[in-house]
Structures are given as structure tokens and as C-alpha cells.
Design a protein around this nucleic acid. Sequence first.
DNA 1: TATATTTTGACAGCTACTCTCATTTCATGG
DNA 2: CCATGAAATGAGAGTAGCTGTCAAAATATA
Lengths: 213, 213
Amino acid sequence: MTGMTAPDTSFSPAGSPRPGLRERKKIKTREAIRTATYALVEEQGYEATTIEQIAERAEVSPSTVFRYFPTKEDIVLTDEYDPLIMEELRARPADEPWPDSLRHVIRRAISLGMKDSHAVSRLRTRLMVEVPSVRSRMMESMSETGRMLCQAIGERTGRDPGSLEVRVYAMSIVGGLMETSMYWAEQDHAPDFEALVDRALDVIEHGLPQENH
Amino acid sequence: MTGMTAPDTSFSPAGSPRPGLRERKKIKTREAIRTATYALVEEQGYEATTIEQIAERAEVSPSTVFRYFPTKEDIVLTDEYDPLIMEELRARPADEPWPDSLRHVIRRAISLGMKDSHAVSRLRTRLMVEVPSVRSRMMESMSETGRMLCQAIGERTGRDPGSLEVRVYAMSIVGGLMETSMYWAEQDHAPDFEALVDRALDVIEHGLPQENH
DNA sequence: TATATTTTGACAGCTACTCTCATTTCATGG
DNA sequence: CCATGAAATGAGAGTAGCTGTCAAAATATA
């Protein structure tokens, strides 16, 4: 989602030599930094948490923190689902109507994202609502997701992925889903997220339903 | 658009005492800072331009710059059209179909925004494409515009402005228009912007047109 | 002209972030 | 098992955005 190199967390596939000590250490460090950050943010809030504190708790130097994550927001937000989404999208049957494919894939992405641990998903979306800089960073990464969506739409429909129409369509989806996440967080994560996403996609596909206020 | 107090640039309406010396100086300072910023950014680029340089050229102290604009990005981006948009929207006839009202108002907002001077509009959108932090800030302010749109939709359709459906609808419009601006900037501002916006609104209203690649 | 209020400037301070360079840690070939 | 090369790390200095405080200057009011 942010263009960073995705660490391979899956158990090593047969045939490929298992990663060396260096790779394993890298992954461990990365996770240590993230874990430390989550804990500190829960304890003291986002702004009050400094890179130095994170470094100290993760038992690395501040420079190392920046070597792993370009910005503080990225420590909280980074995920690497975009390639997965692309893959899933390509795997859908070619004759399936586009909106259906989209629905399936997004639903799958959500269940993957939730797997991270419910607590983390909730913290993320809460920070998204509360901390402007985090929200900004999130929007940045969503616009990258938008680009990827354009690509997928292009492959699927034979359209030019760079055309205004495709780009607008993709960004309106991304914007709508982002708002859905924020809505969910504002409701204290009480509603069922997948149901919200379904309603959001309905709106994007068919416009506002007839007024029944 | 950014929640800042909008300076009253309109000629003083009859009956209201003309602004005192203080108000006039404030406006002058504000414009001096902006003008200095635009010039410096054109000369050296955005990142290379520091607040100190801006302050020096505008002949104020750095602290004053921050007193007028909360962040560096705001100096470039701030505009105050949201209240205008709301007003225009309320002025449309109540029986006009919603999409038509939207189209009219957006078109009007554009022509107002362009009036600023074509050069400034172009610089803004260019920075939006090139400088991530500016793009982020822009997205922030667009999400505020989204909130306002929700309000307007609520007033117009009698719907709850805080409902998921309305919010998703508003944000998908805002996202689509944002992408349209970026597209325009990427094409070196060659296409007619209003035509692009029309195409974008078509996509949002009716989905992607039938494939005619 | 005297007084109250607002605006400004100077300064100090914090923190995210960058860059450089020496040191340590791991991989590899003999 | 050891020597060589490469990669990761740590330490430190430096930049710049941004916040706060407080005294001085400019402006309004009486």
C-alpha cells in the first residue's frame, strides 16, 4: 500500500532456501519497532510518543527506526496488501461482472487486514480519525491503492488505465471506502465492518438510494 | 476549505463601516506572505524554500508567518470557497434535480477559483502533483469540503448528513474531483478543466461508460 | 495626550527527519 | 576455522518546521 518492500511472513515455500540470519533479524527488528510503537501510543497517545522512546523500547537506535520506516506515521500505518489485492483480482473469473469481483476482493482484503489482530485494526482506524497527520498519510497510501485499482480495471476491461474516466472511478471508490473506515471508527467499531462496506459499494454503484428518511 | 477565517475581500457592503487600519494591514501582510511564497517556490521549488526566506522577502518575522498560516502547505493551498459553495447550493431552485445543482455549483466554484489568476491555479495543482506534503494537505482540506457537502445534501434531500450513505456519496465525489485536478495538472493544464469535470461527474453519476476501447 | 488592546519580533525549545562515518555483525571462500 | 567483503547498526551533528513566551511597537479609544 505504501510501496515498501513487503516482508515475507509466510512460512517458507518448499524449494526456496530459508532466509538467512540477516533477513530474520531484519524482520524481527521491524516487528519490534512496530510493537513498541503500538504499546507506547496506547499508553501515552500518538503525539506524545517520540521516536527516541520508540527506539529505546525496541532496543535499537533512533537512526535504525528511520532506516526501517520513512516517517512516524508509516510505523503505524504500513501494510502491504496492495499486491495481494491485485493477485486476487486477477484470479477472479473473467466473465464475472466487475462490481462483483470488486466486492469479493475487497471483502477478502478486509478479512486479511483484520487478521493482524483486532486491536491493531482498531487502533489504526482510531488514529486515522483522531490524528490529522496519520489521516493524511493514510490518504496518501490510498491514492497509491487507487493507482493500482486503475491498473486492475484496465486489465479487466481493456480500458486505458490512465484515462480520466478510469482514474475518477477508482478514486471515488477509494474515497468512499476511506470514509467508511472513518465512519466505523467513529462508531467505536460497533457495526459490522463488512456490512458497512457493502452499503458503501451500493452507494458508489447505484448512487444514493431513494429518500426514505 | 481549511476552516480558517476568510478575509473579506469583497468591497465593503453599504452601511458597514469600512475596515480599520488594523484589518487592512492584516490583509496586506497575508497577501505579502503568499506572494513571496509563490515567487520563491517558482524560483527554487517548494522544499528548498524555507520559512525564513519567505519571512525575509515578505518583510515580516518568521513568527508572523506562522501566526498567519498554521503550516507551510497552507500558505500555498488555503482558499475559502467552501462557504461560497454552500451559499450557491442553497440558492439553487429546490425542484432542480440534485446532480444538476451539483454541476452548476461546482462549475461556478471553478470559475471563481480560476479568477485568482491562472498562474496561481496552475502552480497549485502542479505542486499538488509534485509535492507529497502539499497533496496530503490538499486531501485534508477536501475531506473538510466533504463534510460540508454532506451538510448540503442533508438540507437538500432531508437525509441525515451523518449517515454512512451520504458521507460515502460525498467523499466519492470529492475524491473524483481531486483526481480530476491531478489529471489536469499532469496534462500540463492543456485540456479544458470544465470539460474534464463534466466527464468526471458523469462517471460518478452513471459509472464507467460502456467499453469502447 | 494617556491608556488599553492588538500585533509583532526576538528568542528559546522541541521533535521529526537527514547525512556522514566509524563500528559491529553476518556471509562467503579458502 | 579464519580472512575478506558486504551489510546493518549506532553515534553524532545538523536542518527545518512548528510552538511557546514575553517584551516592544503599532493602533484604537477616551
